[in-house]
Simulated scan of single mutants.
Amino acid sequence: MNLPETDTSLFKRLRFVLVETSHPGNIGAAARAIKTMGFKELVLVRPRFADALQQPEAIAFASGAQDVLDHARIVNTMEEALAGCDFVAAISARLREFSPPLFGPRAISEKLSQSKHLNAAFVFGSERYGLPNEVVMNCHALINIPANPDYSSLNLAQAIQLLAYECRMAEVENVPVASNIGFQGQLAQVEQIDGMYQHLEQALVAIDFLDPHNPRKLMQRLKRMFSRTQLEVEEVNILRGIAKKILDVQKK
């Protein structure tokens, strides 16, 4: 089924981010997986081999999705990979104590399809180690695929295919958008929220609420708390204003 790609289409708002991928074939298979479901944007963060997109195995496994490989980007940092995003979801089979809110593939797909204002990214870890905790904690959601608990290991491309399929079905089914009550401002992007966390941490250290030598996971808990909301730009500015005022008072 061919779907019209409007400016708010999820096919234009969702990118797939692969972190430190170990096998060229998985990159090609990932490109094929997202293209078959109508998606285009693939970003690689520090792949573990040179010329990742030109590797013969990557090209072979892409099997007709060469255009996705040709337009894929290779970056060195998560900040570059997520620039312009205001919603980021990590995919992991391992649950964390301080993880962001947990979603299944269908629930997250419906959420993204309905939220026409969200520019989103799905982040997948390396085949060997998955995603590091610091990446997961800075995401807005954690996606856990409810596989067989006795054997829950999914190949990277299989996981990507499953998420891409659910997102396509959410768009095909045209799930009605829940009406919003009241004013909704512009959502803050990832880099704006990261800057707020840094500013807030400085303020908490300044008033001795946070001991930098013994932080006791305070910032992780705060990030988890804020990740349950969708912070708007004005809200981030308010929090940074509070942090600035605290720092100004401490200097006097």
Rank of each mutant, 00 (worst) to 15 (best):
P4V: 11
Q158C: 07
L53H: 02
F122E: 01
K12P: 01
G38S: 10
K111N: 06
I193F: 06
K252T: 04
N148W: 10
A52W: 01
Y197S: 00
L239E: 01
R94G: 09
I193M: 12
P100I: 15
Q114G: 11
P215Q: 11
A90T: 12
S115N: 03
I34R: 01
N237D: 04
I242N: 03
L142M: 15
A93I: 09
E97F: 05
D208L: 08
E235K: 05
P4Q: 08
F49V: 07
D248Q: 14
V175E: 05
K35V: 00
Q186H: 07
K244E: 03
S63D: 15
V45S: 10
R106G: 08
V43F: 12
F122P: 02
N138Y: 08
H140L: 09
G84N: 09
A93P: 05
E80R: 04
D211N: 09
S113Y: 07
K217M: 14
P101F: 12
F16I: 03
L222T: 05
K111L: 12
M196C: 13
A188M: 10
L10A: 08
A50P: 05
F98V: 06
Y129D: 10
R216C: 02
R106D: 14
R224I: 03
V43T: 06
A29L: 14
C139A: 13
F16A: 00
I242L: 11
P132A: 00
M196L: 09
G130R: 04
F124Q: 07
S92E: 01
T77W: 10
H23F: 14
S152Y: 13
E20V: 05
Y151R: 04
A90F: 04
Q202Y: 07
G28K: 11
N26M: 05
L163E: 03
A120D: 05
E166C: 09
F183R: 14
I91R: 00
I246K: 00
K12E: 09
V123A: 08
Q54T: 11
R96V: 10
I238L: 04
Q184R: 12
A141N: 12
A89Y: 03
E41C: 15
E173R: 08
A120T: 02
T21V: 07
M78H: 05
A170I: 00
L18W: 03
E166M: 09
K35C: 05
T36H: 06
V205I: 14
G130K: 00
L82G: 05
A121V: 02
E134F: 04
L18V: 13
V43Q: 02
N76A: 11
P56I: 15
N155H: 04
E232A: 11
Q202E: 14
L154D: 00
Q55S: 15
M37R: 08
F98K: 13
N119E: 09
P100W: 01
E166Y: 06
F226V: 02
S179E: 10
R32I: 14
Q250N: 13
Q161H: 03
A188N: 04
M137K: 09
